[in-house]
């Protein structure tokens, strides 16, 4: 078989990649408060316990609010930038787009620190709002990357054809552009939502008195007796992430099928 050794290596690599995720539910359903083998038997009590922690519920709601807002704002900003980048030539295009995409490679601690400095200098208090500002900054490049490929797959003459047939610029956007890039928009919303929901370091610096879910989790990791509950929560989060990603991937593929283009791979 071609690539025999490579295939074995690839499978081992997948095991390496999935090892933590596979262990997570094992400990979440394990009837023991110490996270170690051998397993002690099946229980759902850690999941039940999750429902009894008010601080957790506040953190979850806070995170959801932040993630939804981030997803919408960064997708909107991503739409503007991706459209401009794929459709128009304008002065300093490389520089402008470069600046916008920088957070993709910038260490997050730099983003966190610099936003913190500005907030403190301006005398603004830290809140969910400041977390959103930071999250939009790091999610927008992802949105742009996704929407860029949507716009690139969109034949420009489709819009010209609609305009030529009597539609205005706005109705052309509504009737042609929007339906054809909608899968990209949904995918961008889901990805930005997932990143924001999971992001720790910026939230850690900018959250003030309203911890997000990862910040709350971080505070719990110090207490060994809380770990099984964290595992249960982690299991739910992972399941949720996989669900969201599968949905995003589904929409991405549907978008490709709809425009009749070739599938060229993943999200990035």
């Amino acid at each position: 078989m071609r690539g025999g050794w490579l295939r074995i290596y690839a499978l081992l690599y997948l095991v390496f990649l999935y090892a933590p995720i596979i262990l997570l539910p094992l400990f979440a359903f394990n009837n023991g408060s110490i996270i170690a083998f051998p397993l002690q038997g099946f229980t759902t009590r850690w999941f039940v316990e999750l429902t009894t922690i008010p601080a957790l519920h506040t953190a979850v709601l806070n995170s959801l609010m932040i993630a939804v807002t981030t997803a919408i704002v960064s997708t909107a900003l991503g739409l503007c930038a991706a459209r401009a980048a794929t459709r128009y030539e304008f002065p300093a295009k490389r520089g402008i787009m470069g600046l916008i995409m920088v957070p993709l490679v910038l260490p997050e601690i730099i983003v966190a620190v610099s936003l913190l400095v500005v907030m403190l200098q301006l005398g603004l208090g830290l809140s969910a709002m400041t977390v959103i500002l930071g999250h939009v900054l790091i999610c927008t490049p992802f949105s742009i990357a996704i929407l860029n490929s949507s716009f690139q797959n969109l034949d420009r003459s489709l819009e010209e054809a609609a305009f030529d047939l009597g539609e205005t610029r706005f109705s052309t956007f509504r009737l042609i552009t929007l339906p054809l890039i909608m899968p990209g928009i949904i995918s961008s919303l889901l990805i930005a939502f997932t990143i924001s929901l999971d992001e720790f370091i910026i939230a850690f610096f900018l959250t003030g008195n309203e911890p997000t879910l990862p910040v709350y989790l971080w505070s719990q990791l110090r207490f060994p007796q809380r770990i099984p509950v964290v595992m249960a929560l982690g299991t739910i989060l992972v399941a949720l992430s996989i669900l969201l990603l599968t949905t995003a991937e589904y929409f991405r593929r549907r978008g490709i099928a709809r425009t009749g283009a070739d599938d060229t791979g993943g999200f990035l």
């Binding site: 997932t194 990862p214 989790l217 992972v238």
Partner: peptide, 10 residues
């Protein structure tokens, strides 16, 4: 890509 999108902390 899936594992990358699951909670980093965890």
């Amino acid at each position: 890509t899936i594992p990358f999108w699951t909670s980093y902390l965890i």
